[in-house]
Design a protein around this nucleic acid. Sequence first.
DNA 1: GGGCCGAGCCAC
DNA 2: AAACGTGGCTCGGCCC
Length: 599
Amino acid sequence: MNVDTKVDLKYKFIETQDGLEKIIEELENQSIIGLDTEATKFDPFTAKLLLIQLATNDNVFVIDTTKVDISPIKHILESDRPLKLVQNAKFDYKLLKVQAGISLGALFDTMIAERILTMGISREISLKVLAEKYLGMIIDKSVRETFIDQSFGSSIREFSTEQLEYSARDAFVLRGIFEKQFKKLQEEELINTAKLEFSVIPAVANMELYGSLIDKIKWRKYIAELREKRDAINKEIQNDLRHLSPYSQVDLFGNETDTINLDSPLQVLEVFKKLGEELPNTAEATLKKTKHPLANKLLEYRAYEKMITSFGESILQKIHPLTGRLHPDFIQLGADTGRFACNNPNLQQIPADSGFRSCFIASPGYKLITADYSQIELRIMAEVSGDPAFLKAFHEDVDLHTLTASQMFRIPIEKVNKDKRFQAKSINFGLMYGRGPVSLANQLGVSVDESKKLLEIYFSKYKKVKNWLDAVGRQTLRQGYVRTLGGRKRKFNLPDKSDMDYTKIISSIERQGKNMPIQGTSADITKFALLFIYREIGKAKLDAHLVHTVHDEIVVEAKSEIADDTAKMVEEQMIKAGEKLLKKVPVRVDVHVSNCWEK
DNA sequence: GGGCCGAGCCAC
DNA sequence: AAACGTGGCTCGGCCC
């Protein structure tokens, strides 16, 4: 049954200071309020706050913040009571923090809640979708755009009735959605996951607001070096191919033009064809197997091109003109396992062994603390499988890959060479992805028979690892979901037997089911760590800030004088977070204090 | 000229 | 060419 929301949504428009004073008592008495804001932009630093809407038990208040100073309700917004229901709370948190100096207290985020409830089977989490799904209400979001860049400069412009009704409704629907979601979260035993996610929102919001500082000059110098190398190899390739008409040409002014677009797979395939090499595609794996010297040169060109285009000038363009820093968007539940994703720019994919990372620097007078969990996923594997050999390795703090190699090949630890260690490491990591013998054989450069043998030996040494992997794969298929140690759930749409790709889909779900408890538990732990660190910084009022996180790594900027103490705190809190979920295996964190982001 | 998608490749 | 889990960015190429 659909409700026509165009009519009869009662709201009270507050456009005077007096009007605000009159509703304070009602707001103070609420245990829960729906909250939404409207602003001229999505960027919290330059947006102008236009409206704040608060939905109580009995009323919806729409407050005109261009006319009303909202500091009289600051204490209500910052308190943990009433609980604030917000759709995508991080946005409102940042806006209110920067534009009104208000840090929202306890939150229930309907968007995050929906993601938790439908992890793996849906990404439909907009307010429009939720209002329809839970309340049968069709809401029109097109009004939102009318606020964008709405000028409230010197000239007084009034809000339209349509705008006010739209705004009121967005706050109003939150309570109904919350009630349904809360019940579901309880039924599915996802309350703890939700609590963790909600409480980490302010940590993430502040991390985004603080942002990262880049040494622009050093960055540009590095790009210039890469460009030189790329251009050299490009020229070489074009010269090699000059005889292949019609690609090499001389333009009207007698200048040579490189008309083979090396970035076009179509043109590249064409060139190979002319050279007598029929290739199925131009993927890295194909080129690596191609004898022709062009293949290697092309791979070299691509490596430089990737660096320049993905990490070059485009990242500098994202530096905020007001703050001079990068403020990427950390998507709290970006991955279905619970991991963060990151964009604008994605600082989680900055090349590790390149000149780029060292260009991320501390502010003057500050230091960067880079802290990462040591082999956290393998430790989780030890915990969930309870495998005695795995556990022993971590308790004795020996290198697991070396130990694995020594056990697999029946040689003493001292006799393990690089090659043997690499083979063992490949299996250790491969396990977590559900890797098969074919793929292993290719990485190790051995036959499939040999790689099968290696896997057999491996599993004979680590029986409980095999048992756990098999069991969790079966369990995922049986129940259609799988959980992390923190209780986070990932669901799966199980295929119908009649499905053409039935077995393919089944084995894919098995692999995802095996990986989720490992990758997802790591995400649980990192989120606890972010929360703990954020709280410690607040409690001790440290001049320190979260700036970055990459799955098993956290970067904090701290005033130089307190950097070493803060590093100790970060390490302690990360270990505490790890020990919340890992009981059988020790947790280790590597910490570095430096002027830049590095390991 | 914008939207979408696949190829290719960076991170953990 | 894919294999082996989770993402995002840039490009070419195609569509409207």
